[in-house]
Design a protein around this nucleic acid. Structure first.
Length: 435
RNA sequence: GCGGAAGUAGCUCAGUCGGUUAGAGCGCUGGAUUGUGGCUCCGGAGGCCGUGGGUUCGAGUCCCAUCUUUCGCCCCA
């Protein structure tokens, strides 16, 4: 039986053209967040399993994490997300860091689950966090950063919606306003989280089953129903509007709109999967009709750093996955045509290899990326090879060129050929590379 | 983890009722008087029909299992 050439289930090989796309996406991400002063960090892909047992949703640890025992008997996990890791790093140097911290990373993460559209077992996820600010200005900045990234990819505001909500508001609604106990609240929040994926009747039935007789008596169901239909903060009952979280949400919405981000809305059904969110959460949705799903999101999690036994550090952050981002870019026709990192494919004509290599080395010295075809094949084959590699220019070097030191530079896109000196070639190619 | 669909050449696929040496297009490769790709013409390579069992005189075709891909569910990015 032959060895399989397939990559591991749910993981991808990155051939040069795939890697080109990944590098492009990471470059835009880095440039966007660094504009706001975020600094890159990194960490090992392996973590102690304990790190994930304390928090996170239970299912992620039990069923979706790759775990194993190392040779020393330690329980090890391949990181399924970056937030616990970065919280651990911050906690380790809690006292000496200069707050507010603006950190980002693009780690690869692993989750053991069934691969399907937009979800693989290994993915890369831009993580952007701001540590050390309780002020809603932190949320404002984080959302602006997320918006700015999408804009840099060429997206316009009609392509996505930013939905905001608050966990504190939801907790208040469930505990105080509806009078639910802890178990009921937890179940209901998970139910609201997937409310849009189930028929209204099924949702109603599950909600009804959740309430106790006395709660039903008190009209809990109707109250909840009314709330879930709320599209604006002003439409909330007075008691809820006075909550600090709601005031903060209102401020956020107003400021974002003032900053020319009109596609933000309040959405009371946004919950986010992780249990560690403590207040404001947000979610970015693709508006493309065929891919109308949550692309990524984030929120405030003030409790995580404190789990390591140090004073808590208030934190706001989000994670943006490469697979969902790619789907978004493809859906909105935002994928760039990427060329090779190689600027020039040199074609040596005749028996002049030694002299030609000298010229090529000079060009490399002046900063060009040049691959040389030393096969001596027919010229048409060599041009075809260059073209297939998505190299932009072919450079012919033969007797004639070497004699007068004028080389034939061919633009493989247009087919236009010109004779130039080496230094002129360098500036032409560099000019092209710049844009 | 639970359902549905699909696996034939590198890619996209055809293959009748189970019947001889398994097909096309594209791609790859060589050539059309040796310094120019994409067009045209001619030649060539390339298949354990995903894998393992079973039924049958005979299986790409029917049955079972398994792996992979894919769509949905759970969950989430």
């Amino acid at each position: 039986m032959a060895l399989s050439t397939q990559p591991y289930k749910g993981a991808r090989d990155f051939y040069p053209e795939d890697k080109r796309l990944q590098k492009y996406m990471f470059r835009i991400m880095r440039e966007s967040v660094e504009k706001f002063g975020y600094e890159e960090y990194d960490a090992p892909i392996l973590e102690s399993l304990d790190l994930y047992l304390a928090k996170t949703g239970e299912e992620i640890v039990n069923e979706q994490t790759y775990t194993f025992e190392d040779r020393g008997g330690r329980k090890v996990a391949i990181r399924p997300e970056m937030t616990p890791t970065v919280s651990r790093m911050v906690a380790a140097r809690r006292q000496e860091l200069a707050y507010p911290l603006r950190w980002y990373s693009i780690p690869n993460l692993w989750r053991y689950e069934r691969p399907q559209h937009g979800r693989l077992r290994e993915h890369w996820q831009l993580n952007v966090d701001i540590f050390g600010s309780e002020d809603v200005q932190a949320e404002l900045e984080i959302i602006r950063v997320a918006d700015s990234i999408l804009k840099t990819f060429g997206a316009t505001h009609d392509m996505y919606t930013i939905k905001l909500n608050s966990r504190k508001l939801m907790d208040f609604i469930m505990n105080e306003y509806l009078g639910l106990n802890q178990v009921q609240s937890y179940t209901l929040s998970k139910l609201i989280d997937r409310m849009h994926k189930m028929p209204a009747e099924a949702f109603d039935a599950e909600v009804e089953a959740l309430f106790s007789p006395s709660q039903r008596e008190a009209g809990a169901h109707n109250k909840l129903h009314g709330l879930l239909k709320t599209k604006h903060l002003d439409a909330l009952p007075e008691r809820l509007r006075e909550l600090p979280s709601v005031v903060a949400l209102q401020k956020l919405l107003t400021q974002l709109k003032a900053m020319h981000i009109p596609n933000v809305i309040f959405d009371i059904t946004v919950m986010r999967g992780f249990d560690y969110y403590t207040d404001i959460v947000f979610e970015v949705n693709d508006t493309h009709p065929e891919n109308n799903r949550s692309m990524f999101g984030g929120g405030r999690y003030d409790g995580l750093v404190g789990l390591f036994g140090v004073e808590p550090v208030p934190t706001v952050g989000f994670g943006m996955g490469d697979v969902t981002l790619q789907n978004f870019l493809e859906g909105h026709d935002l994928m760039p045509k990427l060329r090779s990192e190689t600027d020039v494919f040199a074609i040596i004509v005749g028996d002049v290899a030694e002299k030609a290599e000298k010229v090529i080395d000079d060009l490399r010295e002046m900063g060009l990326h040049i691959a040389v075809d030393f096969t001596g094949r027919k010229i048409d084959k060599q041009i075809k090879t260059a073209s297939k590699k998505d190299v932009h220019y072919a450079l012919f070097i033969g007797e004639r060129e070497l004699k007068d030191e004028q080389y034939v530079l061919r633009n493989l896109q247009t087919g236009v050929e010109e004779r130039h000196s080496a230094s002129r070639i360098v500036s032409i190619v560099k000019d092209y590379r710049e844009d």
